[in-house]
Design a protein around this nucleic acid. Structure first.
Lengths: 243, 243
DNA sequence: CCATGTCAGATTGTCAACAATCGACGATCG
DNA sequence: CGATCGTCGATTGTTGACAATCTGACATGG
């Protein structure tokens, strides 16, 4: 319930414990970035030997990095057979957004009485960054900033398990948004959609916020599902290579 | 939303695809069982070399098994320093039960219109098993059956991500219940508490079910928190050995 | 007596070779 | 010609040895 750290892009994040750098973490970061950037398409095979040689690491750390991405829902594997980037499916979209509705409502319930000036300022700051990115037509930045806007309530909740659950959803969400971006050059959110979301988040009516979340998610799910059913207008698919 | 498989302890589960047996899965199972049985106490160190030699496996599969248990919240590790069974904390208890309240409410929302005879029969069956275990004074069985009672709604939801979130909570819950059982010889739930839960789950009023879940979780959290503040009456702590 | 620097032991991180398993292709037989 | 079985290449699973890092204790100097 208490605040933990609202600062992320702020310069306030010093004095935190130094992150231990292991190879598996670096490999996971790089591989995650490659997948979310669309360099490796959903469904494409991920061969351990090829990847380990490409990253110039042995298969040990690489395997552990893969396990991490499996947890995040970006990768799927079947023993002795093969590993692939997670394929996209409409069922997943539905599950992601419906569960996200429940989690985000719960998160706001937790935070509701504790939305101090710091919270409001930070929310406005992140929203401004989102608007700027959208107006600038920077799709990558708009995806990132939208995740940061929605991520704030999870961070502010100080609820570690909730935050963890959010991370489990965030990667999957990114995967779909990235695919959408690659196909259409623009991902879902409209400015006014977020304006009402922010207004409700700063307002006094928790029930209204719940409703706003439900609507926001319904719109998001619809947009993403529609995209999935007719993936791209120009058929410019990415290849899932490895060397 | 559709049902997936309600049968678990039923004899109906034959003819299913053969589970791939990898060493890491077997090691994870064994180690998880050892932790939940209390053979290794919360906070006790888990040394990879010692464990690998004890299980007669190399450190590779053992490490991957540890990563899995880390995901489940049973184990914590800090790079280059050490790995331990997750320590108990009152904050965790609060987080587990509060998040569980949100998830289980959501699960019932998903299932509510689809509670057919199969669902009701299975719920009654599992509840009967729980009652039998409690009456027989079999603590281990009563923990398992209680998890199965509450697990039904997640399974019936057919919501893979929700089920996954439940698994992320279940292990942690088991850890606390097991610790409680070891200290007091009996874990929380009273018969009447579950009777009202089951009644509401089979009833017509979803709002009443939400309330019942909230109450059920509040009672559970209180019991577990109380135990954590004064762990045991007879000070019979388990040792966390490795050889 | 306290602060600082150094060292040794322990523990995890990483590597490269070897084994088990799988899916697909092609030979063989009816 | 079709179905079945065996074989092969590819991929992941597993292993044991070696390297990097951390923690705590001890010595040293102020």
């Amino acid at each position: 319930m208490a605040f933990s750290d609202l600062s992320s892009a702020d310069a306030t994040a010093v004095l935190e414990p130094v992150p231990r750098n292991t190879l598996r973490a670096q490999v996971a970061d790089r591989l995650r970035a490659a997948i979310l950037r669309g360099d490796i398409a959903p469904g494409a095979p991920l061969v351990e030997t090829a990847l380990s040689e490409r990253f110039d690491v042995s298969r040990g750390p690489l395997r552990e990095a893969l396990r991490q991405l499996i947890e995040e829902g970006l990768v799927v594997t079947v023993p002795y057979t093969g590993t692939h980037v997670a394929p996209l499916s409409v069922e997943d979209v539905h599950e992601i957004y419906s569960l996200r509705t429940a989690l985000e409502s719960f998160a706001f319930e937790q935070v509701w009485p504790y939305r101090d000036d710091r919270f409001r300022t930070e929310l406005n700051r992140r929203n401004a960054a989102l608007i700027a990115a959208v107006d600038a037509g920077d799709d990558h930045a708009s995806i990132q900033t939208e995740l940061e806007v929605h991520g704030l309530v999870y961070e502010a909740s100080g609820h570690r398990l909730l935050r963890r659950a959010w991370y489990g959803l965030r990667g999957r969400l990114q995967l779909y948004w990235a695919a959408h971006h690659l196909a259409h050059g623009r991902h879902g959110p409209r400015r006014d959609s977020h304006d009402s979301y922010i207004a409700a988040a700063l307002g006094d009516d928790l029930a209204a916020m719940r409703l706003e979340i439900a609507n926001h998610m319904r719109r998001g799910a619809e947009t993403t599902e529609r995209f999935l059913r007719k993936p791209n207008p120009s058929e410019k698919s990415k290849r899932g290579d490895k060397t």
